[in-house]
């Protein structure tokens, strides 16, 4: 059960110095606050579901709590939003696409939880152990998919990056040569003379960008087409496949109270809250990249190379997440199996 969770990157002894060496209270307060809020909301759920048995109004409270829980739950850095954001950055996606991806994957995640509990617990009356086994299998598949997805991104983005490098190198060499030639001419003059070299670099890179746009790195316009959506579907599927342990617990509890529908409603509202937060983070990621593109594109030469590098890095992150989660180096929420 609960497998790799403890195999954290830098495992320490159970009595390790982490506490003694002191986590200094700084920005971490936000994380702490998020944590305590989530558990607060989560803990209120069981009592509210119980109350809903006799008092219909409690269902509204339940939905409110679930929504808040979803928002807070997703605000902590988790693999879902990390993968989605990295994917968006790697793939020149639009913010709008990011929002759609976030909602779709959260919806899928809720759906998987409901179907799983509906089929396993309700129809088959399976034990928690069986359900947990199913959950873990789904989890492994989901992580493997993220890794595969990341590998594919790295492959394509790596190609783009290498090509950008190749285009860049001769231009840079020329730029360096130019700078050498004019080295003795004083700073101001040097700077001035240098400008054409920069322009050349930018021009080359721009050409390259256009070329790439058609064969390797799709522009946002293209992604909005049918092929683009299919690609996005991969991300939705990989991330949304794995249900949230919290949702499973809530659903089973609601089922036992004879209020399965309330659990289902809570799960979808939770998903809605999660989607809002993930979408916000995705939009920030996309905007950050746009900002980076503008900065590197206007001020400096080699902007395209740089952006290919960023995309390559983001693709690498997706792969890293997948592999890390798969082998338990990155502990996401553990699946409850005891």
């Amino acid at each position: 059960m609960l497998d790799g969770a403890v195999h954290a990157l830098m495992a320490q002894t159970p009595f390790g110095g982490s506490r003694a060496s002191g986590a200094e209270p700084q920005v971490g307060g936000v994380v702490g606050w998020l944590l305590s809020k989530q558990s607060e909301f989560y803990r209120e759920m069981s009592a509210t579901i119980r109350a809903a048995k006799s008092d219909g109004h409690a269902v509204w409270t339940l939905l409110g709590i679930s929504f808040a829980y979803g928002i807070f739950h997703a605000a902590g850095p988790g693999h879902g939003k990390a993968v989605i954001s990295s994917y968006l950055v790697a793939n020149q996606e639009t913010a709008r696409r990011g929002v759609v991806l976030s909602f779709a994957s959260a919806l899928l995640q809720s759906l998987v939880a409901v179907v799983m509990v509906g089929v396993c617990a309700w129809l088959l009356n399976a034990t928690a152990r069986t359900m947990c086994g199913a959950e873990r299998t789904i989890e492994i598949v989901s992580y493997a998919l993220i890794a595969a997805f990341g590998a594919r991104l790295v492959w394509t983005k790596g190609g783009g990056f290498m090509r950008a490098l190749q285009v860049q190198r001769p231009a840079l060499a020329r730029a360096a040569a130019a700078s050498h030639d004019h080295a003795g001419h004083g700073h101001h003059h040097h700077h001035h003379e240098h400008a054409p070299a920069h322009a050349e670099v930018a021009h080359l890179a721009h050409d390259h960008d256009e070329h790439c746009g058609h064969s390797h790195g799709p522009v946002p316009r293209e992604l909005a087409g049918p092929g683009g959506w299919r690609r996005g579907f991969g991300a939705i599927f990989a991330v949304g496949l794995r249900p949230c342990s919290g949702a499973i617990l809530v659903l089973v509890f609601a089922l036992a109270q004879g209020l399965f529908w309330a659990g289902v409603a809570a799960t979808f509202v939770m998903g809605l809250g999660t989607a809002i937060t993930v979408a916000a983070i995705a939009v920030i990621a996309v905007s950050a990249k746009d900002l980076a593109r503008r900065l590197s594109g206007t001020k400096e030469g080699g902007g395209a190379l740089f952006m290919r590098g960023v995309e390559f890095g983001a693709a690498g992150l997706v792969l890293l997440f997948g592999v890390g989660l798969l082998f338990g180096y990155l502990a996401a929420e553990r699946v409850t199996c005891f």
Partner: peptide, 30 residues
């Protein structure tokens, strides 16, 4: 290059930190 690179590197680093921190923040009790 300097400024922009540094700024974007900063962004990337925070993304990485976010990634590594994933386990910490998701680990709220169930």
């Amino acid at each position: 290059m300097g400024k922009a690179i540094r700024r974007v590197l900063g962004l990337l680093l925070s993304a990485g930190a976010l990634a590594l921190g994933a386990g910490v923040a998701e680990a709220h009790p169930h």
